Every structure is written in structure tokens, then in C-alpha cells.
Computed example of a mutant assay.
Amino acid sequence: MIDNRTAPYAATVLRIALGILFLAHAGLKLFVFTPAGTVQFFGSLGLPGPLAYLVILVEIVGGIALIAGVYSRIVALALTPILLGAILTVHGPAGFFFTNPNGGWEFLALWIVGLIAVALLGDGAYALKPTPAATRPALAR
């Protein structure tokens, strides 16, 4: 049974935690690897280098949107392909465990589950701009 009194706060905690993770990963690309280094890394994976700029931008905007509660359901679904791409190109070949060399895909899989949970649960409490009912998944209406 779901406690309808506390569920909105649980959704908020999850939404904010996921947003912080996206900002942290964007910060890693900006301040540790640098944008130029991230572009070079994307190129080494056979991806178009400039795609790195788009990924950084999406992580920043998506992270802020999740933290603020701006169309959280839609943003959560939109961020999922970023993580799937990371699994398919970098972390998947490294195996399941994140402690493997090059990091496995277990953490990213859990992160995707969290995003799907936000998409299904909704914006939660204190959302600045909740997702309109017409664009919510059918199960969440």
C-alpha cells in the first residue's frame, strides 16, 4: 500500500537526488575532464565529438529541471537515453559491477530505474511546474 501522505515527499527526494547526480556528472565533464577532453573522449568511442556538448547541456538543464520540479516526468524520460548511451558505449562492455575497470553498468541501471520511477510517480511536492495531466503516462493519471 502506498501512503498518500508521504508519497509526494518521497517523489521529491528522488527527483532532487537524481537532479543532483546529473549536475555532478555535468560538472565532472566541465571541470575535471574539461569540455575539450570530453569531446576527445566521445571521439575515441566513435561518437561525434560535438555530441559531448549536447550531453553536457542536457545534463545541466535536465538536472536543474528535476531539482526545481519543472516538467519532471517528461525530463526524466528525456534523460534516460543519455544513460542508455553511456551503458552502450562505455560501461556495458566493462561488465555489470561499477567497481570493474572502466566502471560497469549497475549504477547507471539503478539511475534509469530512478528516472522511470519519477516518470511514473510524478513531480512530487514542491514542484515549480508540474507536468500537465495531458502529457503524463496513462498509468499516472
Rank of each mutant, 00 (worst) to 15 (best):
R15G: 06
V118S: 03
T6M: 10
G103C: 14
I67R: 08
V55Q: 00
L115A: 01
L79T: 05
I87Y: 02
I20A: 10
A109V: 12
G114M: 06
I56P: 02
Y9Q: 11
Q40F: 11
Y71C: 09
G27F: 05
N102S: 15
Y71H: 11
L121K: 11
V90F: 08
A76T: 03
G62C: 05
V61Y: 01
V75C: 02
T12D: 08
S44D: 05
I116L: 15
I20V: 14
A76W: 00
V32K: 13
I60R: 06
W111G: 09
A133L: 13
L120F: 13
T99I: 15
L23M: 07
R141L: 10
R15S: 07
W105C: 15
F42M: 00
A94C: 10
D3H: 10
L110Y: 13
R73T: 12
L18D: 02
P137E: 11
H25C: 07
L51N: 06
N4E: 14
P132G: 06
L128W: 04
A36S: 13
I116Q: 11
V75G: 00
R141P: 06
P50S: 04
A76I: 01
V13C: 08
A36C: 07
L14Q: 05
R15F: 03
A109P: 06
F41I: 00
G27C: 07
A65P: 02
M1H: 14
P130T: 07
L23W: 07
G43L: 00
G19C: 04
L115P: 00
T38A: 06
V70Y: 06
L45G: 02
G63L: 00
T34S: 13
I64Y: 03
F107E: 12
A140T: 11
L84R: 02
F22S: 04
